[in-house]
Amino acid sequence: MSEKVYQLNSDQIGVVNFAEPWFLAHFEVEGEVEPYQHFFPSLAEGIQKFPTVFEEKVINHWLAQGAAGQKKLRDLKDYLISTWMNPGIETMREAMFQTYGHPEFREKTGLELIETNNDFLAVVIGHICLRYNKSHFYFNGLHISGRTVDKMLAVNFWSKVKQEAMNDIGTTIFK
């Protein structure tokens, strides 16, 4: 394996600030080769689209395992119900109604929503990560981390590459 070494100047390193915090989700699922990270450009978009990514990376992976995967999903729901009913399931149900104005969350209980709605299951796990469990959620080979990010350390490679390319053009002999 080759090793890359970058010689950076201090003027190439800086902080990028986001006008609105981004939501970063990190997924590690036992049996998957690589962890997966997904950036959502706002918390609202994270809440809206996190369930789709959760279903793709976790639920579909488990369901592809057949009965063993269905058992994992059942065990996850049971764990959330027994450990994270309130705070967790109920606080997210209330927030979805009060903050985001979704009327269906007023009419159903948290238990009904967890049992019948995998999207709500995913949102609850994200809610637990952000509000109650120091940005992490662990369950039987599943690790999910959720963070809001308002700034990021960045490296500007392009100015150095551009300068080197311009220098190379100056010394190139055309025939």
Rank of each mutant, 00 (worst) to 15 (best):
Q7V: 15
F40A: 03
V33P: 03
T83A: 03
L121E: 03
F54H: 06
N167E: 13
A154Y: 07
A165S: 13
M92I: 00
E32T: 07
G69V: 10
K72D: 00
A122E: 05
R93E: 03
Y100F: 11
M92V: 00
A154M: 12
V123Y: 15
V33S: 13
D150K: 14
Y36I: 11
M166A: 15
T109V: 00
K77C: 11
A25S: 14
K4F: 10
F137M: 00
V58A: 03
R93H: 02
K134M: 03
T99N: 07
L111D: 05
I59M: 07
H127C: 01
L111Q: 11
L153R: 14
Y6W: 12
F54S: 04
L111Y: 11
I144H: 13
K4D: 14
L153F: 10
V155M: 04
Q163W: 06
F18Q: 08
G66V: 04
K4H: 04
F105T: 12
W84V: 02
K71M: 02
F157P: 02
A67E: 04
G88F: 07
E104W: 06
E32C: 07
G170D: 14
E112N: 06
Q65A: 12
H136F: 04
T83G: 01
D78Y: 09
K57Y: 06
S145M: 11
N9M: 05
H127D: 09
T148R: 13
L63N: 11
Y79A: 07
A165E: 09
E32Y: 01
E90V: 09
Q98T: 15
E112Y: 09
N86D: 09
Y132D: 04
P21A: 03
K71W: 00
L111M: 07
I89M: 11
G69E: 06
D11H: 07
E34F: 10
I47M: 01
L111A: 07
